[in-house]
Amino acid sequence: MERNASFYWTLFRSTFALSAFTVGGGYVIVPLMKKKFVDELGWINEDEMLDIAAIAQSSPGAIAVNASILIGYRLAGLPGALVTILGTILPPLILLSVIAVFYEAFQDNEYFVALMTGMQAGVAAVIVDVVMKMSLGVVKGRDPVAIVTMAAAFVASYFFDVNVILLILICGVVGYLNYLYQKKCAEKKEAAK
């Protein structure tokens, strides 16, 4: 796509909107980004999105900021990264500035609490939708190592609260060992010929 003003505007608008609606922080923004940049705009592919999520998670700082830097950089280098950073930090900056001023009033306002609760239910639906599609993709890939990794990582993270960085490190090692194994198998096949 052409990197003109309308491209940068779409990039800014997309990250701004995503950041403005991502209640809950942390990983929540990843499925929303996937929905926007992979499914809707088709600017990056699903594997790249998952890699971006893994890098964002393993780097210092907020995941939302890290992931948006990676997406901006992928699409348009440093200028792209600047645009996505701005789009991501402006909504919380504006919102929290207002809240800091009217702090006591907001806290007990039933409409404000209701709005946030409703948005949370909506966000949960988006994540469940994305997860259903993505996990089906992994299962359809028919790679037993990938399927077992996914199931084990889920159990470890959700039920046992295992440290996420540790999980990512372990899964990276599993990926590396699997790569060595596949390579060896390929070499054996080659030798048999």
Binding site: V130, T149, A153, C171
Partner: peptide, 11 residues
């Protein structure tokens, strides 16, 4: 390749 299924699980 090892990280991707883990990321799906984390999401």
């Amino acid at each position: 390749g090892g990280l991707r299924p883990a990321v799906v699980a984390l999401i």
